[in-house]
Nucleic acid binder design. Structure first.
Lengths: 341, 341
DNA sequence: TTGAAAGCGCTAACAT
DNA sequence: ATGTTAGCGCTTTCAA
């Protein structure tokens, strides 16, 4: 079945074992070109019994084709991104393309490094989170020589294609729902945002809409690191102590929102009567909390699917060449923590 | 700065632009061999201004060296695995190696496919979750021609190296703590386990230890799919209705344990007096719940680090050739839901 | 239906 | 310190 060789096997080994030319062996192994059933069987038997694994490096070099799609995201720990990846896989599994994931930890320099590294494998496509990149990264993307899809966000200028939601609009929509429900003393909690552009845009959309209604955020707090659930709890306690008359808390993500929710429930606060609550993302993980937190889903899985579909379609298609922008619409979920107007 | 070329740039382009031979350009770009400061500068300037990105495919083929480490895990959605990946990255970032992740969805056939795919890129090492693989997968691993580290579990026969904990022992340890604390009517909830070997081993270690004390599981329930938090809540409600005199609930993971905890707290149950609770994993995500669930951490990050270190060390080292098995010891965290004896 | 020759873009090994 | 030569293992192209 196998012999413990040190040198990896090559086409030549299969060729010799089967008495068929390398070229024909190659054809069989790739199901390309016409090969008689007889030789096909011989070759497959030989390949299997030797335990031959083709060398894609050589194959890629010779064919100038790599079936890899570079996927670059900020972090795998964030819940959000595995869902995007799932969407990408949904679509790519039906093709010969394979996603390869790299993460940037929200650091532009690391993004640059990861991007460079991945491009040096000459992928068939790039899917990258966000529209904000260093100049060097943008240059690389522009030169990549393959389709590039920027995802999650549409508020900005894509290099090539783009699939996402408008976070500004999402912030605005949430503000509108909150105002309509009659809340007026609003607190905000979120991550420190210098590098989380999407959170920043939501915040901007949110505050701008409040401002138009003549309302300012009454209190706010930012965190970084640590367990989000615990942070949400702590920040909420601190903020309610500092500003006891708040009637609404808007969290930049569901995890800290859940922490706040648990804290307030224990404190016996009437939700959503005395205080309303909302998060962002629609994290399914949290189904099962005592109350369903109001939230807005970010269409994560669909974003992944659409992005992958764009890459897949462009493989065969001629150079399409218009910047394709797909804006998805997040839906507001009132849950049990935001009064309906 | 860049010119919108269609053909990707090659070393030759840089060579011509800088008036330096391809070979020397290559040396500069890899910091290999002695190159005068003058030419080094010229080359770097040329490369940068052209926006040259080296072609690793060609490089890998020529040098027979690939700086990729294949990492194969069941799922990215599981929380557990991103932490293992973080451990791997911790270590690999200090080297020239790069992790490439593939996921199997707990399906042996998919594992086989992913493994084949990754091996065809001739990686410098393989890190793969679990000790149970199809025959074909084991054969591929044995033939891989690079270090292979099986992780998470040590209860079995590794192909090569192995880093993990004994899940049987973990189950036993938890059973001992529960018995010592005086609990006797014990319920178990977990995933359906045909393919989750580690959960199965914990369950075996657990029940076996109870059996030695003359105790049998009083009730049990298995689930699959859905939000774990919600499932934990539902299953707990169902089980407590069915078997109201249970005094302990052992969950096969922290998420369902958290769902159960939330349900019981709402129901006004005295924890850990009337009923004790424990999960498994030590998911940091859950810090911030009303009570800290008793759990046992699975040393996930350290497993990643140790595995990566083994791969990294074997790069330069001669063929070491003894199956290296690293067994880590999970620590029991009593949290607030398990009485101390 | 099958085979032979010529590279893909880079690097190891050997000159110089 | 720099250049030359010969592949790496496959696939493309063309011939048989």
């Amino acid at each position: 079945m196998k012999s413990p060789t040190k040198r990896p096997l090559t086409l030549r080994d299969v060729s010799e074992a089967s008495g068929v030319s390398e070229m024909t062996v190659s054809r069989v192994l790739r199901n390309k070109g016409d090969v008689s059933e007889a030789t096909r069987a011989k070759v497959q038997a030989a390949a299997k019994s030797l335990g031959y694994v083709p060398n894609k490096i050589a194959g890629a070099l010779a064919s100038q084709r790599v079936n890899l799609v570079a996927v670059i995201i900020p972090s795998l720990g964030n819940m959000v991104f595995p869902e995007v990846l799932a969407g990408i896989s949904d679509v790519l599994e039906g093709t010969s393309l394979q996603p390869v994931v790299g993460s940037t930890d929200y650091l532009p320099e690391k993004e640059e490094k990861v991007l460079f590294e991945m491009l040096s494998w000459r992928p068939s496509g790039v899917i990258i989170a966000g529209l904000e990149h260093s100049d060097a990264s943008r240059a690389m993307l522009a030169q990549a020589g393959c389709p590039v899809v920027e995802i999650m966000d549409v508020d900005g200028e894509p290099v090539d294609a783009c699939v996402g939601i408008s976070h500004r609009r999402a912030g605005r929509k949430m503000a509108e729902a909150i105002l309509e429900a009659g809340y007026r003393k609003i607190g905000f909690m979120g991550t420190k945002m210098p590098l989380d552009h999407r959170a920043r845009k939501r915040f901007e959309g949110f505050t701008r809409t409040l401002a138009k209604a003549g309302i300012e955020i009454s209190d706010q707090e930012f965190y970084s690191g640590g367990s989000a659930l615990a942070k949400g709890r702590e920040m909420t306690e601190a903020m309610m102590t500092r500003t006891p008359d708040l009637d609404f808390l808007y969290y930049s993500n569901d995890m800290i929102g859940a922490g706040g929710l648990l804290y307030l429930l224990e404190a016996g606060v009437d939700i959503p009567g005395q205080i309303g609550l909302a998060g962002f993302n629609g994290v399914e993980l949290l189904d099962g909390l005592p109350r369903r937190l109001a939230t807005m889903d970010a269409c994560r899985r669909e974003i992944g699917q659409r992005a992958a579909r764009i890459i897949a379609e462009r493989q065969d298609a001629p150079e399409s060449e218009d910047k394709e922008v797909v804006e998805l619409s997040p839906t507001l979920d009132y849950g049990d923590t935001l009064r309906r107007s």
